[in-house]
């Protein structure tokens, strides 16, 4: 096979992949608007995404705030702007780091598990079994997970932001000796309500992206344990890349 034929085939395959993804995306949108609404299943998934990621989010949130305070303090102290550490911290957390890092942590924790679960269901014929019982796998498996991520990633982001500010306050005030009054004031004066809401809109998008990609990769997993492993890996990589690139375009659009 010549290189041109091979390239042609590769293009063909990519177009086919895109087509398939688009069809699944449309089916997901369709089932979002149609009954049955699986409230119970959605709550189970919300618990899984939210409670499951609670610990890693706590840890990363606190330490992100702490290191931010440390870095900005050392940069700002040289021109006597320590009082701005609080505002810098709050702005970077609410606009950028909260949504992005929460999205990435949920991808690692819950996205990978979604891909592995659906992938296993695919290779052990459980998805085929669903279909023979006249239950649409997209409706039954995708919609509750995507709804859960859409709700829980913003919730976790708020929690991440809060802990980040607490961690930053702790380091800034107790360890580096910034006065608590100016620290808090700079946050209150320089942070807008909009910084928070735009950050939350972002994190909602990240939740959608990571849950759809993870479900899709698991749903289309190849054969055997190998196929599930590949699907999980691809789900994490693709979700992370899309979160980080999507972040740029969302920032450009929102702020």
């Amino acid at each position: 096979m010549g290189p041109i034929t091979r390239f042609g085939r590769w293009i063909f395959l990519q177009v086919e992949h895109m087509g398939r993804l688009f069809v699944v995306l449309l089916a997901t949108l369709y089932w979002f608007l149609r009954p049955p609404y699986r409230i119970h299943e959605t709550f189970l998934q919300m618990e899984y995404v939210g409670v499951g990621s609670f610990f890693v989010i706590s840890l990363t949130g606190i330490f992100t705030g702490m290191v931010l305070a440390l870095q900005t303090f050392h940069a700002f102290v040289s021109f006597n702007a320590e009082s701005l550490v609080g505002a810098t911290l709050a702005l970077s957390l609410t606009r950028e780091l909260g949504p992005v890092l929460s999205g990435l942590m949920v991808t690692a924790r819950a996205g990978s598990a979604m891909a592995a679960k659906l992938g296993t269901m695919r290779v052990t014929e459980q998805i085929d079994a669903l279909q023979t019982m006249a239950v649409d796998p997209i409706e039954y498996l995708f919609v509750p997970r995507i709804t859960a991520a859409l709700i829980m990633v913003p919730v976790l982001t708020v929690y991440f932001n809060f802990l980040g500010i607490v961690g930053g306050y702790f380091v800034g005030v107790n360890y580096l000796g910034i006065a608590p009054g100016p620290f808090i004031n700079s946050i209150v004066n320089l942070t807008d309500y909009q910084d928070l809401t735009n950050g939350l809109i972002k994190s909602g998008f990240f939740g959608l992206i990571l849950s759809f990609i993870s479900c899709y990769k698991g749903y289309t997993a190849g054969e055997g344990a190998e196929g599930v492993g590949q699907a999980t890996m691809q789900a994490v990589v693709l979700s992370s890349v899309l979160i980080l690139t999507g972040d740029y375009f969302l920032t450009d659009w929102l702020f």
């Binding site: 052990t124 014929e125 085929d128 079994a129």
Partner: peptide, 20 residues
Amino acid sequence: LKETRKKFGMLFQDAALFDS
């Protein structure tokens, strides 16, 4: 196809039970 499938009952070779 979904409506038609409701008339069927199927056993898979490896049972394909939902493991959760």
